[in-house]
C-alpha cells in the first residue's frame, strides 16, 4: 500500500466521519488541528483512495490537497535568536514550511553568529542529527558563509539545505564539499515577509526542501523501515495511556524513518520496547529506542528491513 501525505481542510461538522474513513482505509492521522469552525487534518492516506475521501468530504466542504512534507521533522538552524535581532528570517521560514505539513523545530545556536567566532556544540549537533533534514539560515556576506560553514556542518549527517543572502550560484560555488540543497537571496533581513516576491522566495525554499526529501524518500524506499513510523505512532497512541496526558501539539512526532515520543526516557523506554506490533514482533526488535537530546524525550529509530528481515 502506497501512502501519500495529504492535508484535509474542512468544517468541524461530521469531520469524525473523515477521520474514521481515513483510519478504515489504512491511513494515519499525523496531526489534527481544530481552529474554530474548521478542522485541518494532516494525514498519510493510500494513493488510490484520495479520490474517495475527496468525494465523501465534498458535502462537508472538505478539501484534500497533497502536502509533501507531512510526516517529516525538520530542524531550522538559525545562527542566533537574540531578541534585538528580531524578527528573524528563520521565524518566517519555519512557519512557512509548517504550512506544508512538516513539523519544524527551531535550533537557535548558542554561538552561531560572527565569522571567526561561530561554533556548533555537541548538543546542537546531536539535536540537528535527530531530524530528517536541516535547513541552515546563514547571513548576507559570502566571505562569512565561506569561512564559517565548515564549522557549522561538522558532524551533521542529515541532508542540509543552505539558505543565505548571496545568490544560489554563489552559494554553490563557495560551499565545498557540496550540500544537498541551496536557496539564495534568503539572508538576514529585519522585516516580515509579506510581499509577493518574498512569498515566492519562501515557495522556492519549500520546493528545494521537497526535492531533497523526495530524494531521501527514494533512497529509503530501496531499503524500507521494518515498520512504517506512522503505524508505530498509531500503536503507541492506542497502547500507552500516558501519551494522552502530554500537552505538546504532537506528543508523538512522526519522522521519515522514526518517531519522537514525548515521554520521559527512563520510565517509558522499557514499556515501549515491550509493545507488540503484530504476531509477537515487539518494537524493541524492529527499532532502536534511544534517549533523545531534546529534553528527556525518547527517539525511536526504526531499523531497515535488511537489518531485521521483518516487515510488519
Amino acid at each position: 500500500m502506497n501512502l501519500v501525505p495529504v492535508t484535509y481542510k474542512g468544517g468541524i461538522y461530521r469531520h469524525d466521519e473523515i477521520v474514521d474513513l481515513i483510519e478504515d482505509l489504512g491511513g494515519y492521522i499525523i496531526q489534527k488541528h481544530v481552529l474554530a469552525q474548521e478542522v485541518v487534518l494532516q494525514a498519510l492516506v493510500p494513493r488510490e483512495d484520495i479520490e474517495l475521501i475527496a468525494r465523501i468530504g465534498k458535502p462537508l466542504t472538505g478539501e484534500i490537497t497533497p502536502s509533501p512534507l507531512v510526516g517529516t521533522e525538520i530542524a531550522v538552524v538559525t545562527m542566533s535568536l537574540e531578541i534585538h535581532h528580531l524578527p528573524h528570517a528563520s521565524c518566517d521560514v519555519a512557519e512557512y514550511i509548517r504550512r506544508f505539513g512538516a513539523k519544524t523545530n527551531m535550533v537557535g545556536l548558542a554561538r552561531g553568529f560572527g565569522k571567526r567566532i561561530a561554533q556548533l556544540n555537541d548538543e546542537e549537533r546531536d539535536v540537528i542529527n535527530e531530524h530528517d533534514l536541516a535547513v541552515y539560515l546563514l547571513g548576507d556576506f559570502e566571505t562569512c558563509i565561506e569561512h564559517k560553514f565548515p564549522v557549522l556542518r561538522r558532524g551533521i549527517h542529515v541532508p542540509i539545505v543552505v539558505l543565505g543572502g548571496p545568490s544560489t550560484e554563489t552559494l554553490k560555488k563557495i560551499i565545498d564539499p557540496p550540500v544537498d540543497g541551496y536557496v539564495g537571496n534568503v539572508g538576514r533581513f529585519m522585516h516580515r515577509t509579506k510581499e509577493s516576491d518574498e512569498l515566492e522566495m519562501l515557495d522556492q525554499v519549500v520546493t528545494e526542501i521537497t526535492r531533497v526529501l523526495d530524494k531521501k524518500r527514494d533512497e529509503t524506499a530501496k531499503d524500507p523501515p521494518s515498520v512504517s513510523p506512522a503505524r508505530l505512532m498509531d500503536i503507541i497512541e492506542s497502547q500507552v495511556e500516558e501519551i494522552h496526558e502530554v500537552l505538546s501539539p504532537t506528543p508523538v512526532t512522526v519522522q521519515m524513518t522514526g518517531i519522537r515520543v514525548k515521554l520521559p526516557y527512563d520510565t517509558f523506554a522499557p514499556v515501549l520496547k515491550g509493545i507488540t506490533i503484530e504476531e509477537g514482533v515487539t518494537i524493541g526488535e524492529v527499532a532502536d529506542v534511544l534517549p533523545s537530546r531534546m529534553r528527556d524525550y525518547i527517539l525511536i529509530r526504526v531499523k531497515p528491513f535488511s537489518e531485521t528481515n521483518i516487515m510488519v
Binding site: D140, F141, E142, G165, P166, T170, G187, F189, M190
Partner: peptide
C-alpha cells in the same frame, strides 16, 4: 566590498531606523 551584502544592509538599516 560585497555589492549584494551592501544592498541587504542598506535595506536592513532602512527598516530598522524606520521601526
Amino acid at each position: 566590498p560585497e555589492v549584494a551584502g551592501g544592498n541587504y544592509y542598506r535595506r536592513i538599516a532602512d527598516v530598522v531606523l524606520l521601526d
